[in-house]
Nucleic acid binder design. Structure first.
Lengths: 153, 153
DNA sequence: TACAAATGCTTTGAGAGTCAAATCATTTTA
DNA sequence: TAAAATGATTTGACTCTCAAAGCATTTGTA
């Protein structure tokens, strides 16, 4: 029992500590080597659908609008994002993925798909349900901790 | 089936994207509010055992020695880390956790324990095996991707 | 209708984390 | 003993981040 506990701990710690770096490295193998993991997450948040305003994307990413402005400056410069002012309300800035940006989006999506496939390839339906429940528990635990913190903000 | 796939993807993405922030927030509730998650990871890498040199800790953390030097400067200033030159080979710098640093180490360890306990408290032995196997698969996947990258470094 | 308030975004200043390259001190090797 | 190797620090530059100040536009109201 103790052994299972230790194994699980080790797996989670490794996963949590390394995940961002590994994800970035995995993505950088290919043609998009001038993108950081942060920038990829911005592209992911904008999404391939219709244009979005700065505020909503910043809220989704849990960063300030000022931080997002700077990130978008760079992504526009690198031609992954298009930025236009809204005609109906000229305060609003609309951002959307360029063709190049959409390509990155799909590439990142594929990375996730591969990851999931690798994860579940040897699992039965029953086992998958178990996995989902366990991951749900972890998420709940963090959420609880997180909200506790937020009260003190 | 597709639904299970989507749920799993969502859970993993959420977990991976939020994990560092949530961990930092959870840890900052308490007395060690002047430590970043990065600094806590440095303390974790040094460990509570005997003193270690800069190179090996930097290698474990996958950062350059220069970056570690700066981190250690701050941790020494904040009294979480002791730094001495090795007598036998005066090129080598030995770093170790101070009592205060060891306290943080144990606190962080406890956080992980709590996380794991929450996760497994509702799982049977059988379910735990599934979780371990799935997480192992994810780790393997990343490792494979990661090593692939390293060839190009 | 004009002007104050609110809204949406950008800019600025500052701090942390990171790297590569230059530098310094010490030890090893030829 | 001089050159090379090793281990760490320093320096300069970049990214990511925030808070606060500033700017342009729209909304609300007297």
């Amino acid at each position: 029992m103790n052994n299972i506990y230790g194994t699980l701990n080790e797996l989670l710690v490794k996963l949590f500590n390394d995940i961002l770096q590994i994800e970035e490295d995995a993505l950088k193998i290919d043609e998009f080597s001038n993108l950081s993991i942060t920038e990829i997450h911005v592209l992911e948040a904008i999404g391939p659908e219709k244009a979005r305003n700065m505020s909503s994307v910043a809220r989704d990413l849990d960063i300030t609008i000022g931080t997002l402005t700077i990130a978008i400056n760079n992504l526009v410069r690198k031609a992954y994002v298009d930025r236009v002012r809204c005609d109906k309300d000229r305060r609003i800035v609309l951002i959307s993925l360029s063709d190049k940006g959409k390509k990155v989006y799909r590439h990142h999506e594929k990375f996730h798909e591969e990851m999931i496939n690798t994860t579940i390839s040897r699992l039965s339906d029953e086992e998958m349900k178990v996995l989902i429940s366990a991951l749900g528990n972890i998420n709940s635990y963090f959420k609880e901790k997180y909200n506790h913190k937020k009260q003190y903000k």
